[in-house]
Design a protein around this nucleic acid. Structure first.
Lengths: 257, 257
DNA sequence: CGGTCCGTTGATTGTCTTCAAGTTGGGTGG
DNA sequence: CCACCCAACTTGAAGACAATCAACGGACCG
């Protein structure tokens, strides 16, 4: 469970000042009510890279809003094969599933040092009832996750290796780029280093890391990406988007509720 | 068999009498308020087999609760390849996506003659705000759809052909079985004919229909299934579940909100 | 009776996996 | 500082699995 290495922040960010709130679950909670939502929050917790937030098949008492970092959500088969569900980025809501009290349907492992805001699951029901802004936002977040999951499924089921890999890279790159450009008013690193090992990428796209390695080489030869240990960077977004059949409008959707 | 349980309603079913309401979006709306939700409903609509409820890339003014029948939800790539997202069954909520007014991210085509309850999209916002029971149910339905989509992704990304096919068949069979046993208090056809052509199944699992045909032959040889034109039946659930790595508790989850 | 949709089968090709060995680079402890 | 270690990455060769190409059968329908 939480027994992992967790460190309390010396000073916790207050919800009212939270820089990612505009993309998190409390987006629509009026400023003057934030104090009460904050009561639900048990704490900010940090996880070092490669630590588990929770494990597949085990129960976990918290849900999280990802505050900073990158977290791999994945499932496994009994034969050991892994399928990545999503590389979560700041603002993502983690750990919610239909049977809140049951064993987790997937695992979550930090790809970088990570900070999350934790909420006891027992409060989730109350939060959703008391704040219909949260319920609305939950519906929208879920719709976004659904859109992503379906594009991921399309990618995995109907594209060839190089297209799938291009898709996963360009989607994550696009997501981080949007985040960074909204955080820092000015400019941001034009080239982002995605915190993925080739094996993480292999899990995400449903291929072996060996074949991912060979395919990445093709992409490097075409100057579309660059790699170093545990990092992959997108160099040519336009070409990758074409290769990937990537349309940001299908995934990164503006909310309507 | 599916075709038999469908009853064409000469007069439209009233929400208060709706036999599938307990699994639909209005599950929790108090009896005495049903009249107002009914006002939102524009009509029951029937679609013949192989008609589109809506098409990918086009806009559509309604969302639907599937009342009777089976509907294939799918996406396509520009090269023509199709990936099935889900075979929807009665109680499923269709056509909702984050950008309600935008072009549909997926298409929906009837696999059998189908009856849906249609709701104008412009009322969706109001419905969710006015009835928090609907909002809650929406959140739960979405969690279920998410769980399914993720299992489907796991299946597509990490299993071999025979396992994927077994998974898709046993999952759909299990879903229909649950529906039928709750509809008819007494017994139901023990063997269900799933309304899938081999090509539909191929789309769902991300394989060619030729390879699906060969794999189905293996399953027939093992007496696990039987086929006729446009119908596939599960004969040995237990064996198929093992083959498929299928765990109903991961997908067909009891609600908690 | 011809047409069409769905299913079946064979032969061939190609993508991806598996097995098997390296190599590189960062980190650690002597 | 160097030696060592380990995880991540790289490369080659062989084989498995699924796609493609091609042809045919059978049921249903107008």
């Amino acid at each position: 469970m939480l027994a992992n290495i967790k460190v309390q922040q010396p000073t916790e960010t207050q919800c009212a000042e939270c820089p990612i709130r505009k993309m998190a679950l409390f987006k629509r909670v009026p400023e003057d009510q934030l104090e009460s939502t904050q009561d639900h929050r048990s704490s900010q917790i940090t996880f070092p890279s490669r630590a588990h937030l929770y494990r597949e098949g085990e129960t976990n008492d918290f849900v999280y809003t990802l505050f900073d970092g990158c977290v791999k959500l994945y499932k496994t088969l009994k034969n050991g094969k892994i399928q990545g569900m999503r590389s979560a980025s700041p603002g993502d809501f983690l750990g919610f599933q239909g049977d809140l009290d049951g064993a987790m349907h997937h695992g979550a492992i930090a790809l970088t040092d990570t900070i999350v805001c934790a909420f006891p699951k027992e409060d989730v029901h109350r939060m959703l009832c008391e704040h219909k802004e949260i319920a609305s936002e939950m519906i929208m977040k879920n719709a976004q996750m659904m859109a992503f999951c379906q594009e991921h499924l399309l990618s995995t089921g109907a594209k060839i290796a190089i297209e799938r890999i291009a898709f996963t890279l360009i989607e994550l790159n696009h997501r981080f780029k949007t985040l960074l450009s909204s955080k820092s008013v000015g400019q941001y690193e034009r080239i982002i280093e995605l915190p993925l090992t080739q094996e993480d990428l292999a899990d995400a796209v449903g291929l072996t890391s060996i074949h991912v390695n060979r395919t990445l080489k093709q992409l490097k030869d075409k100057q579309l990406i660059s790699c170093k240990k545990g990092r992959i960077s997108v160099l040519n977004e336009k070409e990758l988007m074409l290769l990937a059949h990537f349309n940001p409008d299908r995934i990164h959707v503006r909310n309507i509720l």
